[in-house]
């Protein structure tokens, strides 16, 4: 009876698949490793961090720290905040670190105060500019990959935040070194720190299914059973970036099978074999 039902489902899925040219191609695109605020997936724990950051921005805090392991969604979080707030207040997001000090201050002057003169702007000059600009809403500057900035520049950023003319949200990888940076430069400052974690297996399932549903890949979303999710979670350790890479490769392999050997792939669930092949290709499994 169960076998019959399973066969019927399989036939229905196969029939549905006939209507679509290549099922896995569109699924694959949903997991391209790009930071796009539109692809931001709201998961319970991430949503809490998001709300905390939004509330922190409203408070008279000078600096806010967002930290977590690589691939936990810091960049995506900053992108989402920028997207949600940029129409309401002055907010700047630097996803790529500007290591040169002069270039950094010139960029800040341009993006915050619309100062477009091509003169060299140093720390003193920038402070003069900020004093000359008063606004009710303090502009927010978000610096992604802040661990790339030099210690000197970080100290100057701290001094700027002390003037309360600009709020900074600094996103760091949580490593030993970055903790030291945080302690040395920001320990005595008023700030709020939020940490992002890797996803649990349950969260990862929601993440994958939400992404696939947004891409209208409902059939593929249903192909992931708990066993598949547990295997993916164990391979990626719940890291969103690694999960994206793994699933992108998984769908690439599935897409190849669909084109070349469609009898070798099941349309009701993903086999562990295909997931392991994807993990071998992405380097998560050393084989």
């Amino acid at each position: 009876m169960r076998a019959l039902r399973s066969r019927e489902i399989s036939q229905l899925v196969a029939k549905r698949l006939m209507q679509i040219k290549n099922l896995f191609e569109s699924s694959k695109d949903a997991f391209l490793d790009i930071v796009d605020a539109d692809n931001y997936v709201q998961i319970d724990r991430v949503a809490i961090v998001y709300r905390s950051l939004i509330e922190a921005i409203q408070k008279p805090l000078k600096m806010i720290l967002l930290y977590g392991k690589p691939g936990t969604g810091k960049s995506m979080m900053l992108g989402r905040i920028y997207k949600d707030l940029h129409k309401k207040q002055k907010i700047v997001l630097y996803q790529t670190p500007i290591v040169d000090e002069s270039e950094f201050f010139r960029s800040l002057a341009r993006d915050i105060y619309n100062y477009t003169l091509k003169e060299d702007i140093n720390f003193t000059r920038f402070n003069e500019l900020s004093k000359s600009h008063d606004s009710e809403l303090v502009p927010v500057v978000m610096l992604d990959e802040a661990q790339m900035y030099s210690t000197t520049l970080m100290e100057k950023i701290r001094l700027i935040s002390d003037t309360r003319k600009i709020k900074f949200i600094i996103a760091l990888h949580k490593t030993e070194r970055e903790d030291i940076i945080a302690k040395e430069h920001f320990q005595t400052r008023i700030w709020e720190a939020q940490q992002l974690h890797n996803a649990s297996a349950g969260e990862l399932k929601i993440y994958i299914q939400k992404k696939l549903m947004r891409a209208s890949c409902f059939d593929v979303a249903n192909m992931f059973n708990d066993k598949n999710i547990r295997l993916i979670h164990s391979l990626s350790d719940g890291n969103y970036r690694d999960t994206n890479k793994l699933l992108f490769t998984l769908f690439s392999i599935a897409s190849w099978y669909e084109e070349h050997q469609p009898t070798k792939i099941s349309y009701t669930e993903f086999s562990s074999k295909v997931i392991e092949m994807a993990a071998i290709e992405t380097g998560f499994i050393d084989a």
Binding site: T249, S252, I280, A287
Partner: peptide
């Protein structure tokens, strides 16, 4: 370029290991 057939072999070896 994805070499699925080679991946199959590697996966087989991995599975045995």
């Amino acid at each position: 370029m994805l070499n699925v057939l080679e991946l199959e072999q590697r996966q087989k070896r991995y599975s045995q290991r």
